[in-house]
Simulated scan of single mutants.
Amino acid sequence: MVFIYYSQGVSSLYQDFTERLMSHLALKGTEITHQVMNPATATMHVRHIDEEGKLDIAIENENVKVSYTVERHKKEISKGVAGAVAGAGLGSILGSVLRRDEGLGDALAGALGGAAAGGAYGAYDGYEESKQERTRFATILAETIQEVEDELQNIIEGQEEAKSEARERGRQKIAEDNEKAEEYREQLEDLYGQVLAVQEEVDMAQSEGTNVVKAKGRIDRAEALYKEAQASFDKKEYGTVRPKITAAQNMVEKAQEALSEAQDAE
Rank of each mutant, 00 (worst) to 15 (best):
S232A: 14
V46R: 02
S78G: 00
S67V: 13
G209F: 01
V213E: 14
K75D: 11
K163D: 13
V10F: 06
V81P: 06
R136A: 03
Q249M: 07
A205P: 09
S92T: 11
G126I: 06
K216F: 06
L259A: 10
A42Q: 13
T135H: 04
N38K: 13
S67R: 12
M204K: 13
I156K: 05
A248I: 03
N63T: 04
K173P: 04
I49M: 02
L90P: 02
D150S: 12
G53D: 05
Q249H: 03
E200N: 10
E51G: 08
G193N: 13
S7C: 12
Q206S: 09
S92A: 15
K54R: 09
M251F: 04
T41L: 04
Q159H: 01
P39H: 05
Q194P: 01
I4D: 12
A138T: 05
G113Q: 14
Y121C: 10
A120C: 01
T135G: 15
E52A: 13
S92I: 11
S78F: 10
G110I: 05
L104P: 12
L94Y: 13
S164I: 00
V81C: 07
Y127F: 12
D190E: 13
D190P: 00
S7D: 08
E62N: 11
T210M: 10
A262T: 08
R242F: 05
A109R: 14
E186D: 15
L98R: 10
T240D: 14
E31M: 11
L55T: 03
N178Q: 12
G126N: 07
E52N: 06
E186Y: 08
E149N: 15
G9I: 02
L196V: 10
I77C: 01
E176P: 00
G53C: 05
S67K: 13
V66M: 05
A138Y: 04
